[in-house]
Design a protein around this nucleic acid. Structure first.
Length: 921
RNA sequence: AGGCGCGUAGCUCAGUUGGUUAGAGCGCCACGUUGACAUCGUGGAGGUCGGUGGUUCGAAUCCACUCGCGCCUACCA
């Protein structure tokens, strides 16, 4: 083996073998376990959030596969309607063309081409991450089967009146010129103005003042509203005002919606351009005047002077005209929430159009119940509140999009505008007896999330009753971020319950969000993104800068991004390898908080991989070609250390298993790390050395230690495999045989299960004693500046029979790990020489000071220890002197404190005595 | 406005039902290279657990209030 672990040398080799052999396909007849990969955008690339989530999904998948479950991790990609269409439209714009010039068919063809070219990025990256998805089942939301499922769902929902078409106010993106759903609107507070306008009463008796943030919409006003109880205006209700500029008479209506405290207490009402006004208009049966075109220019329904103006130009014009007419009462600065499209960034316009909707309430009710009664569990649990909040206030879902890339709505219109919905045109004609009448298909496509909502069953073959569907639905767990609970999770639950009559998954594990080391959200525009592949392979500073500054929406930011990047990564990023990256993700995955991603952390886990690698190297150096006691009748003798490490392994196995089940990957990773580094390497390997090297060791003892070395390592590799698949496979191939195991790959080996019977309290006590002695002596050495390899003669005082036996038993270990030259047990009445002291239980270890230790230094050291002990002693005494504590606390707790006090007193007495003696010398 | 979360060592974070000597990693200080590993070893320094008050024999942990920060929903013209 190489002295240093080199991930590059092994990773691609193993993944190719696993995939070629079909290792990731569900196998056996165990209990089914299934995870649906949240389908990434087909033309996207893997970002840190993906890599994080994929790591956790893969860990779960490998864990269950090793436990013998019939495990499926179902991969696939999403067509991502708007996002993908925008990319190709931008390309066309670069060529001086647009989709209309191309025509629908060619445009869609062009997107398919783009998908074919760039669509493999994510899946290639997933392979680099070691994701053990079953590629043979890979699906795409727009492939044939999934499209059929989409049509089927649409038709069935339509037939049950759960999908309808209607003219309603929707969120309109005037740049993309399509409707979008409520969820695709992101509101942000921005600076604006509040304009106060005078609207004259028609009868000439005065005027009302209304305030607005959007003056141009007054062209579509159809009422002014006041609060019914507002004494200032009560007498005017039912009268009309003369709407300036448009010169129309509009009524004054009374409605509770109006807050009399705000502004003048009068509100202009524009039902066609504001959601609240729309609702108010419905209550009062007001006309709706749509004054905007699709691109947010003023329409012909408005007065001539404004037609064709952009909405913001119209705004200025309206304000100027009102001012000129003496009707502008006041202009004030105002912060307001501005709705923007999440894709285009354009200011969204409430807009009156014909769209298709899913009736949400009837679907939401069973979906709420599924979480309430525990058929679906959120992890961490508090996310159910977020879910309930949204589901209980859910509005109908606008599913039609005025785009070309997506599932075209299966609806046809005849010459009279009658609508027919069916799985295809032939079916529509047959079912409605339309013969060969002219039919035109609806131009619109469905919201991307409509097909995503079906993912848990459409990928398994629905609407056909397939073996896969019967086996893997409901799936086991969904792993995703909180940001798509509404977009996706809630909708999958609704659709799953509706069409499968069962929940789509039993648990939803919500991961935190990956941020950069400063706690900033990672985004292309901030220039702080990291490509997980760059952490695996490494990247030089130039390439990293080039990558981060390429294709920016705001190219002027490039300089700042370059500066920041060069400062943070002057030498680029070293290659850490996949296993280190994955282990980092696992270790960071604590619950309920966002996580800061810090390269120092990855470096630490790369070191950990190297540690494991070298431990394996040591084991192999000591076992290759040697008898490791594999034979059934081999005579084998286990040392205390052997028994101890086996015992520790059981505890670790139990802990890791428990934490994985609880989705506490951070704690599972910590348990593994502690075991490998601090138990196996720091102590066990060191304790093995004297056994293997000493001349006096018997063959049965060597065999026992070799066998334990290699078997514990082998089990540890299996324990770690879900987190670090590559290094564990590589090493396992070398140690499996000496450890007495057979198999083609570690991933099909059983996951370690703790064996209660192999927990060995006797061995644990023995090694705990040994550690205490060694640590005590090392402390003296360290604090007294005694050279590390300077062999020390040690005297033991107050050693009881056990201590004496143990000192004898572990003489080699003490010599090796604490450089003890000799140990002599003092007789009861023997006066010790001037010495430095350490305690191990009641036994006192003395290192004679002659020539080694400075008297003052030892006195200081003792004073420090005494102070520590004395401080704790006062705390314990405080408790025990408290009658209430002694009377009310559980007996065992009280006893524990008494025992502790006794220990402290003994230690105090010993050390004080020691101090006096040294001081007197 | 409502909801959720966070505040523990210089930094990033654990601390599961109240009883630990409050932990880890990184960083810091000192010492150390005859082969598992310098991507390492040994020893050490460093925290009144945001604040106040309460419940309790006992609070980082439970309750109330408070300060600071973050996120998500929401109709303020």
């Amino acid at each position: 083996m190489e002295k240093q672990f080199d991930p590059k040398a092994i990773e691609s080799k193993w993944y190719e073998r696993w995939e070629a052999r079909g290792d990731f396909a569900p196998a056996g007849d165990g209990e089914p376990y299934c995870i649906m990969l949240p389908p990434p955008n087909v033309t996207g690339s893997l970002h840190m959030g993906h890599a994080f989530q994929h790591t956790l999904m893969d860990a779960l998948t490998r864990y269950h596969r090793m436990r013998g479950h019939r495990t499926l991790w179902q991969p696939g990609t999403d067509h991502a309607g708007i996002a993908t269409q925008m990319v190709v439209e931008r390309q066309l714009a670069g060529e001086g063309s647009d989709r209309h010039a191309l025509g629908r068919e060619s445009f869609v063809e062009r997107i398919w081409q783009w998908k074919a070219e760039s669509g493999g990025t994510i899946t290639r990256q997933m392979r680099r991450l070691g994701a053990s998805v079953d590629w043979s089942r890979e699906r795409f939301t727009m492939d044939e089967g999934l499209s059929a499922a989409v049509n089927e769902v649409f038709v069935r929902l339509f037939e049950e009146d759960l999908i309808y078409r209607g003219q309603r106010l929707v969120n309109w993106d005037p740049v993309l010129r399509t409707a979008i759903s409520d969820l695709e609107v992101e509101s942000q507070e921005e600076d604006g103005h509040l304009w106060h306008f005078r609207y004259p009463l028609t009868d000439g008796s005065g005027h009302l003042v209304v305030a607005t943030t959007r003056p141009e919409t007054m062209l579509g006003d159809t009422a002014v509203a006041v609060h019914p109880e507002d004494d200032r205006y009560r007498h005017l209700i039912g009268q009309t005002v003369r709407l300036p500029l448009a010169e129309r008479d509009i009524p004054i209506v009374a409605d509770d919606y109006v807050d009399p405290e705000f502004g003048s207490g009068c509100v202009k009402i524009t039902p066609a351009h504001d959601f609240n006004d729309y609702a108010l208009g419905e209550r009062h049966d007001l006309p709706r005047i749509n004054i905007l075109n699709e691109d947010a220019t003023v329409a012909d329904t408005a007065p001539e002077a404004y037609r064709g103006l952009d909405r913001y130009a119209a705004r200025e014009r309206v304000v100027a005209d009102m001012e000129a007419a003496g009707l502008l009462a006041e202009t004030e600065k105002h912060r307001l929430m501005v709705p923007r499209g999440d894709r285009s960034g354009a200011v969204i316009e409430p807009y009156l159009t014909d769209q298709w909707f899913v009736r949400a309430k009837p679907l939401a009710e069973p979906a709420i119940r599924a979480v309430e009664d525990g058929r679906i569990r959120f992890v961490p649990g508090n996310w159910d509140k977020t879910y309930y909040e949204w589901m209980r206030n859910i509005e109908d879902w606008c599913i039609s999009r005025q785009l070309w890339w997506g599932h075209r709505i299966p609806a046809w219109y005849d010459a009279d505008g009658n609508v027919y919905v069916g799985r295809n045109e032939t079916e529509v004609r047959e079912r409605h007896g339309l013969g060969d009448a002219a039919l035109t298909r609806d131009e619109d496509v469905l919201d991307t999330w409509f097909s995503s909502a079906l993912w848990p069953f459409s990928t398994l073959g629905w609407p056909d009753d397939t073996e896969a569907l019967r086996t893997f639905y409901p799936t086991s767990v969904l792993v995703t971020g909180f940001d798509i609970i509404f977009f996706w999770v809630a909708r999958m639950i609704m659709m799953g319950l509706k069409f499968m009559d069962d929940v789509p998954f039993r648990e939803v594990y919500i991961t935190g969000l990956i941020r950069d080391s400063e706690g900033q959200k990672m985004s292309k525009s901030k220039g702080n993104v990291l490509d997980p592949i760059d952490l695996i392979d490494g990247i030089d500073a130039e390439s990293l800068v080039a990558k981060r500054t390429a294709g920016l929406m705001q190219p002027q930011k490039a300089k700042a991004i370059e500066k920041m990047t060069r400062k943070e990564y002057p030498d680029g990023i070293p290659a850490y390898g996949t296993d280190a990256l994955r282990f980092t993700f696992a270790a960071l995955a604590s619950q309920g908080r966002d996580l800061r991603f810090d390269l120092e952390r990855v470096a630490g886990y790369r070191n950990f991989c190297n540690k494991l690698w070298n431990a394996a190297r040591f084991v192999l150096m000591n076992t290759e070609g040697e008898d490791c006691g594999a034979a059934a009748d081999a005579e084998v003798e286990l040392s205390w250390a052997d028994r101890w490490i086996v015992s520790q392994l059981q505890r670790t196995e139990a802990e890791v298993d428990r934490q994985i089940r609880a989705y506490r990957f951070d704690l599972a990773a910590k348990a593994v790390y502690d075991f490998v580094w601090h138990h196996y390497c720091d102590w066990y390997l060191e304790l093995c050395k004297p056994v293997l090297n000493a001349d006096g060791t018997g063959e049965a003892a060597r065999r026992g230690t070799r066998r334990t070395l290699v078997r514990v390592l082998e089990a540890t590799l299996r324990l770690m495999h879900p987190f670090t698949p590559f290094i564990t496979e590589e090493i396992w191939q070398r140690v499996a045989s000496p450890a007495g195991r057979e198999g083609d790959s570690i991933q099909h080996q059983p996951y370690p299960r703790a064996d209660e019977d192999r927990i060995d309290p006797e061995a644990e006590a023995e090694i705990a004693w040994l550690q205490e002695v060694i640590l005590g002596l090392r402390q003296i050495r360290g604090e007294m500046d005694i050279a590390p390899r300077k062999a020390l003669p040690v005297l033991a005082q107050n050693a009881d029979a056990d201590d004496r036996a143990r000192l004898e038993r572990h003489r080699d270990a003490l010599a090796f790990l604490a450089a003890v030259e000799s140990v002599r047990v003092l007789e009861t009445d023997e006066e010790p020489p001037e010495s430095a002291t350490a305690l191990a239980g009641r036994m006192k270890l003395l290192v004679p000071m002659a020539g080694l230790i400075d008297k003052e230094a030892e006195l200081n050291r003792l004073d420090k220890r005494l102070a520590q002990i004395d401080k704790e002693r006062s705390a314990v005494c405080g408790k025990l002197d408290n009658e209430n504590f002694v009377n009310k606390a559980p007996a065992e707790v009280v006893q524990k404190q008494r025992d502790r006090l006794a220990e402290l007193d003994a230690a105090l007495a010993e050390l004080r005595g020691q101090r006096e003696r040294i001081a007197a010398m």
